[in-house]
Design a protein around this nucleic acid. Structure first.
Lengths: 149, 149
DNA sequence: TATTGTTATACTCTATAACTATA
DNA sequence: TATAGTTATAGAGTATAACAATA
């Protein structure tokens, strides 16, 4: 058990794993963002649109839980989507504190046009992994997530 | 080979892997940012400070390559670190287009104080993985990165 | 001409905390 | 009192492209 100093810290056995996690996410998200850009969507915006797709609308709270976005941030994202006419806010009647966010017709049209195309775009890369590799990666990432949750 | 539509897209076999990649990174980076906050460092700022540690200074170009940050963004990050007296810019003599960024004495002190502590903080969590799991995760993430590079 | 880094623009996202209205 | 969402504050990071200095 040697002490951790500034000089030897970088040699901790988990450092390569941490680096790979960060760099692989950066590489993925850059590719993801690039594919969404032509549709005028940022990654967090697309996350919301894709979450709302094929639903009757979801409350802010639920969207926040699904996308790991805090409520203040989500208000801004939804504001921008609403300004573009892609979603609308609907007050719930049974509990008037709640607001459901729904895709508009225009938003649904975008969802149906963009989502499958974007999935194909991502699939091009993910398909370079074999089934076994994919399952292995999925399992490893799940463990990694558990560590930090 | 069925067509990908908005309705079945979410059932593509790579979707769980993608979700795990994003969520595990989000969980990690939230923990990471929380540990850096008391030192007044953001994640990208710490990335730069840690990259500069134990070096004689590195050029913008190299830092950008190591941290995957574009030059315009890096200028801003370095500006903020310089304003706090943690780094300084040094013009290179052999090629005067290049600027090396170095830790100041204050920056080095911060590096030596924060880096080992932060590594221990991260290690607490990463050590919950066994050696085998860690190596497996590292290997999977490397493959994942290759796909998007 | 090509490269290094800066500047300008214009946003988007972020955390945080106080606030409003409902329950 | 607690919860859902908004607002206010104050950055920080981002992409992009034009730019200056140097090679």
């Amino acid at each position: 058990m040697t002490e951790i100093t500034a000089d030897n810290a970088a040699r901790q056995p988990f450092m390569p794993l941490m680096r790979e996690l960060v760099r692989s996410y950066q590489a993925f998200t850059a590719y993801d963002a690039k594919g969404l850009k032509p549709f005028g969507l940022t990654v967090p915006q697309a996350d919301v649109i894709f979450t709302l797709g094929n639903t009757e609308g979801i409350t802010f709270k639920e969207i926040g839980e699904l996308t790991l976005t805090t409520k203040g941030t989500l208000t801004g994202i939804v504001d921008r989507l609403e300004a573009r006419g892609l979603v609308r806010r609907v007050q719930e009647n049974d509990d008037r504190r709640r607001t459901r966010v729904c895709l508009t017709a225009k938003g649904d049209k975008l969802f149906r046009g963009v989502f499958p195309r974007h999935i194909r775009y991502l699939k091009q890369r993910f398909d370079r992994l074999g089934r076994k590799e994919r399952e292995q990666a999925e399992q490893s990432l799940r463990k990694l997530r558990d560590i930090f949750d």
